[in-house]
Simulated assay, not measured.
Amino acid sequence: MTTTAARRRMSRDDRRRQLVEVARRVVVEEGADALTLGRLAVRAGVSKPVVYDHFGTRTGALVALYEDYDRRQTGLLVAALDAAERSLAAQLATVARCHVACVLDHGAEIGGVVAALAGAPDLAEVKRRSDERYVETCRRAITETDPSAEWTAAAAIAFLGAADALSEAALRGDLARDEAEAALTDLLASQVVVGTRPDRGRACPP
């Protein structure tokens, strides 16, 4: 089968995944400013109408790229938590390690996407949903490890801000990677209160 025929037979979902991956390579190799729908079409070897059909606008392509990044990083976090020791300390350290690793591995790439989306109404909603999923993943790891542990919504908001700040400091070289991980682990451990939630299923006293 020729390359052209293979492209023609690609399903819509596979095509979108291909375009998102090509968009990611454009951002990594050329920067987010280079990502236009025309450039994406050329790099993917498809016509412009195909790209427009999937994303509509450049903003749509950037949002799709951010959402793909979020899904991949959430998947890596869940896998790391599943593989970690089932102790609260180990789970918290895994959250911290994964957050720092995410920024160090992809911070420049995704930072360019976020900067390119600055002011776009879609970004705020996408980031809100992303933060909610991330916090829920972390909270589930905490409470499933110790059902008596509590991590408040206010603490989660503070954690997100500190996690990004510490990780970005490591990306700039202002902090060593292990320093950022240790500081973030300590912060998260200080936020989680253990022994305050009633055990599920416990009978009420007479």
Rank of each mutant, 00 (worst) to 15 (best):
Met1Gln: 01
Thr2Met: 00
Met10Arg: 15
Val22Tyr: 09
Arg24Met: 03
Arg25Pro: 01
Arg25Ile: 00
Val26Gln: 09
Val27Gly: 12
Val28Trp: 10
Gly31Met: 04
Leu35Tyr: 12
Thr36Ser: 15
Leu37Asp: 06
Val42Asn: 09
Arg43Asp: 13
Arg43Val: 14
Pro49Tyr: 07
Pro49Gly: 06
Val51Met: 06
Gly56Thr: 04
Arg58Trp: 08
Gly60His: 08
Gly60Gln: 05
Leu62Ser: 07
Leu62Met: 15
Leu62Asn: 04
Val63Thr: 10
Glu67Pro: 02
Asp70Arg: 12
Thr74Pro: 01
Gly75Cys: 06
Leu76Pro: 03
Ala80Met: 10
Ala80Gln: 12
Leu81Lys: 10
Asp82Cys: 00
Ala83Asp: 14
Ala89Ser: 14
Ala93Asp: 09
Val95Asn: 07
Arg97Gly: 08
Cys98Gln: 15
His99Ile: 10
Ala101Met: 05
Cys102Tyr: 01
Cys102Trp: 01
Val103Gln: 00
Gly107Ser: 12
Ala108Met: 10
Glu109Trp: 14
Ile110Glu: 02
Val113Cys: 03
Gly119Asp: 10
Gly119Val: 00
Pro121Ile: 08
Glu125Ile: 04
Cys138Asn: 04
Ala141His: 05
Thr143His: 09
Thr145Gly: 02
Pro147Ile: 11
Ala149Cys: 06
Ala155Trp: 02
Ala158Phe: 06
Phe159Arg: 00
Leu160Asn: 12
Ala163Ile: 10
Ser167Tyr: 03
Glu168Gly: 08
Ala170Ile: 13
Gly173Met: 07
Asp178Leu: 13
Asp178Val: 15
Ala180Ser: 11
Glu181Pro: 03
Asp186Met: 08
Leu188His: 04
Ser190Asn: 01
Cys204Val: 11
